[in-house]
Simulated scan of single mutants.
Amino acid sequence: MANNLWKSFERWVGQNIFDGSVRNIGSGAINSDDNGKPRSGDLINKTYEIECKCYQKIAIFRWWDKLAPEAKLSGKIPVLVTREKGDIQDTLITIHWTTFNEMKAAWEREKGIR
């Protein structure tokens, strides 16, 4: 049953966020592109390399649950910036998927992708 949860999540992300992208079965271990190269990422998409993670407890959601209502009260877009102590190179930006979709659509229009 646990396998069905992450597979279902990958399908949801592909359908709702990445314009119908499909799951990459095997995520590179057994799947390859048209040129025979291993295909990485959880979803097949020509523009984005997409990994999907679905775990029971991730601290980022506790931080988001505090940030989102504060942003709504202030009329601003919530943005969560995280990194691990001692790792100045890897900083992650978290935004809500609906905000990401709006930004992605604007960027793709600008680039003539859509």
Rank of each mutant, 00 (worst) to 15 (best):
T94Y: 15
Y55A: 08
V13D: 03
L80I: 02
A68D: 09
Y48G: 04
N45M: 01
R114G: 09
R109Y: 05
Y55P: 03
I77Y: 05
Y48W: 10
G86F: 01
M103V: 11
S32L: 07
A105K: 12
W63A: 13
D42L: 05
K104W: 02
M1G: 13
T98I: 11
K53T: 09
D65C: 06
K72L: 08
N101A: 14
I113N: 05
K53E: 06
I95T: 03
I50Y: 00
D87K: 13
D87L: 07
G14P: 03
E51H: 10
F100C: 05
N24G: 03
F61V: 08
E110T: 06
D87W: 06
L73R: 14
E49K: 09
T82L: 11
G75F: 04
L67V: 01
N3M: 07
A29S: 15
E51P: 04
A105G: 01
D34I: 14
N24D: 03
F18T: 00
I30G: 01
A29E: 15
R109D: 09
Y48C: 07
W64T: 01
R11M: 07
W12L: 13
A2D: 12
N4Y: 13
E110W: 08
W64V: 02
S27E: 08
K46Y: 07
L92S: 14
E84K: 15
G26W: 01
I58G: 04
K57E: 15
D65A: 10
G26R: 04
A59P: 11
T94A: 11
I58T: 10
T82W: 04
A71V: 04
S21N: 00
S32P: 00
N31Q: 13
A59H: 12
K46G: 08
R23W: 03
R62E: 15
Q89K: 13
N35M: 10
G28C: 06
M1R: 10
D65N: 15
V79A: 11
I50Q: 02
G112I: 03
K37E: 11
A2M: 10
R114S: 11
K111W: 05
I77R: 10
R83T: 06
K46D: 15
N31Y: 06
A106D: 13
W6G: 07
G36I: 03
T47N: 14
K72D: 07
W63Y: 14
E84P: 08
W63N: 11
A59R: 13
G75E: 01
L43M: 02
R114Y: 10
M1N: 09
I25G: 07
G14C: 03
G86Y: 00
R109V: 08
G75W: 02
R114Q: 12
K111D: 01
E49R: 07
H96Q: 11
Y55V: 13
A105D: 12
Q56W: 08
N24I: 01
V22T: 14
W107N: 12
D87I: 08
N45R: 04
A71D: 00
G20F: 07
R23S: 02
G20P: 04
S74Q: 15
R39D: 06
P69V: 02
N45G: 00
F100M: 05
R109N: 12
P69W: 00
N3G: 08
Q89N: 14
A71Q: 01
K76G: 04
G14S: 03
R11T: 11
L80A: 02
T98Y: 08
G28I: 01
R114W: 06
N101P: 05
L92C: 10
A29M: 14
N45L: 02
Q89C: 09
D90T: 14
